[in-house]
Amino acid sequence: MNDWLLQLNNRIRALSPGKGLIVGAPWFWLALFFVLPFLFVLKISLAEPQLAQPPYQDWIREIEDGLITIKLNFGNYAMLWEDELYRDALWGSFEVAAISTFFCLLIGYPMAYAIALSPTHWRMPLLMLVILPFWTSFLIRVYAWIGILKNNGLLNNFLMSIGVIDQPLEILHTPTAVYIGVVYSYLPFLVLPLYATLVRLDNTLLEAAADLGARPWKQFLKITLPQSLPGILAGSMLVFIPVMGEFVIPDLLGGPDTLMIGKLMWTEFFSNKDWPLASALASVLLVVLIIPFVLMRHYEHKAAEEHK
């Protein structure tokens, strides 16, 4: 770790002072707003809960003058491992994230490809349409889905008025509603990076494939799809990672059987006032999420090599 810091320091010094500032700024930002808060969370996760303000005991305490005790509590992590509730919640989040990512891909790939293939002057307006929902608050958009999905909501009223059903469909407060909400909310995060990859795709590669006898479907499967893999991966990560920790959508649209880690964290933190346990949960989630991220970085490096 020290070596690594030394290298970084040397690298920054090798640049002129002005450049050092520019390179240093994001590192500073990251240290101040990510590493430091995370260290706090890590610290709290090793403390013992107590009924006080703040609701945990510091594990470094001065007993008498100059005498310091350090008492680490790994019980929170042990509890996460022992109590099935947390494992189920982690698995539940993973399930929702994985299935939603799959549906986002299923819907988002054709969208991104269609935009990339459309005439140049059409691309910007189409991309604007993809981004447009961001102009309304995320919370309001999720609330709007309640109005659409509830028993006497827009969807059920419409389906009953045209006679497809005569009993309202129970969608709100079911996993289906969560999936609808998540896929709707996170679709743009997948479409945008995928579009960026597809629009750069060299058209002569497809011509070469056609020239060598590949029919359009084969051209897509053998050239377009593998060439867009970096975009698929980047988009999937942008959906998968935040959905893992998603709290608002399962809380508003999900029911009692929707068990997700974000919701659980909220409960531990605010209802149970168990800050140390909630912090341990947050730390574990971060570690779990770093794994796919490292994989993606590795893949991006490889892809960048091929495009040199």
């Binding site: 011509e207 070469a208 056609a210 020239d211 060598l212 060439q227 091929e306």
Partner: peptide, 20 residues
């Protein structure tokens, strides 16, 4: 006749080798 059915092959100026 589309390119994939012609008894012709082409060498592209950019070579168009499949990078993957």
């Amino acid at each position: 006749v589309p390119p994939y059915l012609r008894p012709i092959n082409m060498m592209f100026q950019s070579y168009a080798l499949f990078p993957h």
